[in-house]
């Protein structure tokens, strides 16, 4: 069984829905930067667009883009990872609640506050009745979604999957997290990356996902043990696997940053700019670890 990245698309602090960042990254010297928005007219009618928060619009735009470029318009599964979900809408409801009390609250802001709003909006937009799930596990939310998709392929239940990492960052939440030293000097940003995965490689797949592993409170020794086990299973040597410098200086920091790391690695792999086997590791605040094994197709 193979799991192939057939297409990927991003909306971020870099130019949206393209690879301009690779040769001409926009440089920022700010603690917090929101995403550069594409023209949503191509993806949504103005009425629908007005009703949606930015995180939903980005999710739809990146999803529709990868559906178009891969030709897979009705994926068997839609799985999203998001650290904070629709935090902008959540905040609207929360602020109204704590400032104005319980009398005059708006249902729309509650309806769009749940984390699974993103995956379900994509499903409604693309008319997909298949497997649908949402992961909200801190800095490894995206990897949780990817692991689920990978297992659905392994179990032969699906042939295609749309997997996304989506997070938005609002000024108040940036401030609150800054107050407890969360950002550690990195630029806070937002994330919208969608991947179309398939078990049969298309004409020009970007990369092949070989394995996805998550660990909790893992020691360096436990992590190495798991990496060696995976290598053994894949019949590759441990030193066949290279690492890459992080792309956080380009895309910033968010709960789903690892989606950018996988996206950037896939773009570079497709162009032959990096080694054929890449291990992407993520250590979130010393408690959650993820490992993504990517190979050239």
């Amino acid at each position: 069984m193979g799991v192939y990245i057939q297409a990927a698309a991003q909306i971020s602090v870099q130019n949206p829905l393209c690879d301009d960042w690779l040769d001409n990254p926009i440089q920022y010297q700010v603690p917090y930067q929101r995403s550069l928005e594409p023209d949503y007219k191509k993806f949504l009618d103005p009425v629908a667009s007005r009703r949606m928060g930015r995180i939903l619009k980005r999710a739809i735009a990146t999803s529709v883009t990868v559906a178009g470029s891969s030709g897979i318009t009705n994926p068997d599964a839609i799985i999203v990872g998001t650290g904070l979900g629709c935090i902008e809408t959540t905040e609207k409801f929360l602020l109204a609640l704590v400032q104005e009390g319980e009398e005059f609250l708006q249902p729309t802001n509650f309806i769009n506050s749940t984390h699974n709003t993103i995956a379900s909006h994509i499903a409604v937009h693309m008319k997909c009745n298949g497997y649908n799930s949402t992961y909200v596990h801190l800095g490894v939310s995206f990897e949780s979604a990817l692991l689920d998709a990978f297992m659905q392929f392994q179990l032969g239940r699906i042939h295609t999957a749309l997997v996304g990492g989506h997070d938005e960052m609002i000024p108040n939440y940036f401030k609150i997290l800054d107050k407890v030293g969360f950002w550690e000097g990195k630029m806070a940003s937002e994330c919208a990356v969608s991947f179309m995965l398939g078990d049969t490689p298309c004409r020009n797949p970007m990369a092949r996902i070989r394995e996805v592993v998550m660990l909790h409170n893992a020691t360096a020794q436990r992590e190495e043990e798991v990496i060696n086990q995976v290598c053994e299973r894949m019949e590759t040597a441990r030193n066949d696997w290279d690492t890459l410098p992080t792309v956080k200086p380009v895309f910033g920091e968010s709960f789903t940053s690892q989606a950018f790391e996988m996206y950037a690695a896939a773009v570079k792999m497709q162009r032959g700019l990096i080694a054929d086997n890449i291990l992407l590791t993520n250590h979130y605040r010393g408690t959650e670890t993820s490992l993504i094994f990517l190979s050239k197709c």
Partner: peptide
């Protein structure tokens, strides 16, 4: 930081210890 759904899972798991992997679902 305790606002995050994932922290809730960590609090539950770490009370017992020994869990090798955690994840949090929100559908």
């Amino acid at each position: 930081l305790a606002h995050d759904c994932g922290v809730c899972t960590q609090m539950i798991a770490d009370h017992f210890g020994h869990f090798d992997m955690l994840s949090t679902l929100s559908t």
